[in-house]
């Protein structure tokens, strides 16, 4: 059996009274893309920060390529590449200039550094903007350069903390393709996101994080099995004059319905064989004299898993 390249063991981090991470453990095998999926404030960045030796764990340890984050920070830092959630570049310096500076911080230099920088500018599609200052870049371009910096020293493991936040769909697609391509070339990736589609598309395995804990871990297939053949129905209702409690009670009584919640006119129902339950639910809505605005039935997916495990939607 192959040895994991990263092993996190019972990581805890407490900030004052806030328990940001409460005992997270997982392994990543070489060549995997492993995603941590969780809502805002789940503890993803805190976990990555501990694995980057940026924050000392309150408790627990992790080994990366055999080196402990507690005692062997220098060795750990040499094998990891970090792409922070916030763009960490010097806006008043050029793209190439940024890369060269960060390269030096990884101990690179000379002709090999220059060559590596050019290579990476090419990889992230910024070769023609190499001299331009980063402050003139679009959000997507900045994110791409942010990734390039993490790759300079050819790390064994790349941490990417929500690398697609706040950018347009094309840039996002481009970044996802880059991640897939890098992984194809053998790079192990630890990816965090709160977009379940990204986790689903990229990852071989996914850890679902909520309130500082790993509440589920496995491949997408394994995780969706947790939910069973349960579909998710999203029904938009006109909130005006809606008798919420009454309607919810009625929906709960419909056959096959396992869970139901209603918030701001959004009725969220999990039912075994969603389509079969639809008739009963619509009848309830009619009875409550509510106005139906839209309706969607989702097959089991990661979102449903999160809902199943926490009773909440992944995104608000």
């Amino acid at each position: 059996m192959t040895q994991p390249i990263l092993q996190a063991q019972d990581l805890h981090k407490t900030f004052g009274k806030t328990e940001a991470v409460r005992g997270i453990s997982f392994d990543i095998l070489p060549g995997e893309i492993f995603s941590l999926l969780g809502p805002n404030g789940a503890g993803k960045t805190t976990t990555i920060s501990m694995l980057s030796c940026l924050l000392a764990p309150t408790q627990g340890d992790a080994r990366i390529d055999g080196h402990s984050i507690r005692g062997q920070a220098a060795q750990v830092k040499a094998v990891i590449g970090v792409v922070p959630q916030e763009i960490a570049l010097y806006p008043d310096m050029g793209a190439m200039e940024n890369l060269r500076f960060w390269g030096r911080m990884y101990g690179l230099g000379g002709a090999s550094l220059r060559q590596r920088c050019e290579e990476l500018l090419d990889t992230v599609g910024l070769a023609d903007r190499s001299k331009d200052k980063v402050e003139t870049f679009s959000g997507g371009m900045k994110r791409r350069l942010n990734i390039a910096v993490g790759l300079l020293h050819k790390p064994k493991v790349l941490y990417m903390d929500e690398p697609t936040v706040g950018i347009d769909p094309q840039s996002r697609r481009r970044i996802l393709d880059t991640v897939i391509e890098l992984n194809r070339q053998g790079l192990t990736v630890l990816y965090t996101t709160h977009y379940m589609e990204e986790a689903a598309e990229l990852s071989s395995r996914i850890g679902i994080v909520d309130h500082g804990q790993l509440i589920a871990l496995g491949s997408q297939v394994e995780l969706t099995k947790l939910v069973g053949q349960v579909d998710t129905l999203r029904i938009g209702l006109d909130p005006e004059g809606l008798e919420e409690a009454q309607l919810l009670a009625a929906v709960h009584k419909v056959k096959r319905v396992q869970r139901a919640s209603l918030e701001n006119g959004q009725l969220l129902v999990q039912a075994e064989g969603g389509h079969a339950a639809l008739g009963g639910i619509v009848a309830c809505i009619n009875q409550a004299q509510a106005r139906l605005l839209d309706l969607r039935v989702d097959e089991p997916n990661l979102e449903a898993v999160f809902l199943h495990l926490t009773g909440r939607a992944l995104r608000d």
Binding site: L54, A88, M105, Y106
Partner: peptide, 14 residues
């Protein structure tokens, strides 16, 4: 605050 110092700390530079 702009994140470049934390990033510096994640590099092998002491």
């Amino acid at each position: 605050t702009r994140g470049t110092l934390p990033r510096l700390i994640t590099t092998p530079t002491p």
